[in-house]
Design a protein around this nucleic acid. Sequence first.
DNA 1: TTGAAAGCGATACCAG
DNA 2: CTGGTATCGCTTTCAA
Lengths: 346, 346
Amino acid sequence: MGNSRVTVREIARLAGVSVATVSRVSNGTGQVSPEMRRRVLEAIEKHGYRPDHLGRALAARRHGALGLVFPGLSGPYFTELIQGFESEAVPSQASVHILCTHLREDSDAQVLEMGRRVDGVAVIGGTISDTALSRLAEMVPVVVVAGEAPGGVPSIRVENTASMAALTRHLLVDHGLRDLVFVGNPEGSPDVTQRWTGFLDAHRSLGLRPPAAPVAVGLQQADGVLAAERLLRAGRGVRRPEGVVCANDETALGVLVGALGRGLRVPQDVVITGFDDAPMAALVTPGLTTVRQPVRDLAAEAARIVLTAVDRPGAPAPGDLVLPTEPVLRRSCGCPPPLTTGGTGK
Amino acid sequence: MGNSRVTVREIARLAGVSVATVSRVSNGTGQVSPEMRRRVLEAIEKHGYRPDHLGRALAARRHGALGLVFPGLSGPYFTELIQGFESEAVPSQASVHILCTHLREDSDAQVLEMGRRVDGVAVIGGTISDTALSRLAEMVPVVVVAGEAPGGVPSIRVENTASMAALTRHLLVDHGLRDLVFVGNPEGSPDVTQRWTGFLDAHRSLGLRPPAAPVAVGLQQADGVLAAERLLRAGRGVRRPEGVVCANDETALGVLVGALGRGLRVPQDVVITGFDDAPMAALVTPGLTTVRQPVRDLAAEAARIVLTAVDRPGAPAPGDLVLPTEPVLRRSCGCPPPLTTGGTGK
DNA sequence: TTGAAAGCGATACCAG
DNA sequence: CTGGTATCGCTTTCAA
């Protein structure tokens, strides 16, 4: 009961009305007499008619879809991002197209192709070239998430530098640590670049010499394990750092696993910090000191920006939004355990 | 230099040819004289014409898009799944729509709505109701991934029961362990159901009594930490299990972190195993004993099945595919460390 | 209030 | 080879 191949014309014929009337009824637009409406609804019901998305989209010249471009999604961060984005898109009847440019050569072309299939796009910072980004922005509304956007393109990100500097200062001043290392590749993502900058800033403002270079690894847990292997191997001339400041929670957890697996005690033998405040951060033993960032809100707001731009092509660009972040001190930096389990703040 | 608002008619007029010829040139179909072709290409180039996706889709009555439905993506498993799916879809010019039904009430309706926007859908098992699945299958080709499909709908999954039984037997027989527990919720996903069955089978075939119930938690790392808290708390009358068999690697890693964080030694104090052979499994210390499953292939094959069905509507359903899996014995079950780091296999 | 008809942008059949 | 034209399914003037 309800072949999906039924068209407006079909319904119009069966109800003995014009296609215009069927369209009006099925969209609730315009005025239709009760009698006509009844006849149409009956036919619609009986044949399970649902207006074809393509026909409608072509007439409206609107896809009813939003795009989301990733470098190569992995881990809780991207999961949150997708869900936050969806939480705004779905209620607006917009489906979500995703594209992982991960390691592909033709990613610029693919993103442009996506631009022809959606009404607007959110691009994660550091994913495609600025030229591609600008060209994309010429075809549809675009917002850059967690990164800098070329002129005219709005962006949204979280505060990285100051909070990472604060966290680093906490380690240097409150815990009196020296020999900190930074785990993460500043080349890879704008977020990491800014966090590395914050790490350096903290050192400099205290007149301390920061390490010359970061431990440039990726952002996955496995990368953290690799970093731990490099940093924490027993003895061997190389001095073990007092603290490992990681670009995100995932790598921090990887380092933590690596440390614990080697029999090291955290924070007594080595201090470890992350960035994100992922669910795991509060659960591991010891709890992970980190910086809380509102990933879900970030993505939801990105979706809102794009949707608004789609609805009102004339509106002024929203510029660059920066969402606040907040250090969360737990046991892994040497702070005393909180009175209740879990995080410090509510 | 190329406004995207140019249409076939525009190009036709500018090149002094008919729209049919423009279409032929831009699609490479039919025969066109070199002279015409040159004129058309020139106009196309000059105005940066690219055929509109909606117009084309409507004419072809084909969206050029595939859908992927998740329960609520999280962790490396879903990451792999998406990338595997994309790896097949993208070369076929199909964009990927995703939908996370996670915790939403109207997920059935949303999946049906998706069915109207794509040419075919892959649904992760246990995500939507069987009725919704059947109705979806009436509108577009569908394949169920990692789950059972109602009659007529093809499915693809990995072998779970036998490999989990083999792994469990290994613990019971080769390592002489008793008091094993299973971490994972069989209600939540078909994969877990089958793994729990395998766990039970191994006990029964050896005449041993398995635990009455699993530790029913989710599939994320955080759930593993919670399970560890419940299972490994010090002393307290409750006897600590000798081995913790987890439904996937993520929870196993969570349990591992929980165990190490409590100062327990693995495998000496407690044995831990997973399922997936995620990248982390080979990297942690001790290496995680697990079962390797080809997640990427699973998703790629799912995409292939859908694409084939889309291209050849008449073709017979491919039935139910089961991809092989393979136990990977590492240190966490008590096996001796391998000669080289990493897994046992190649 | 209702219907006829003109698009939306592209494809493909059928003559010429 | 090439062009005119119907068609895909729906929305939306514009008259009646």
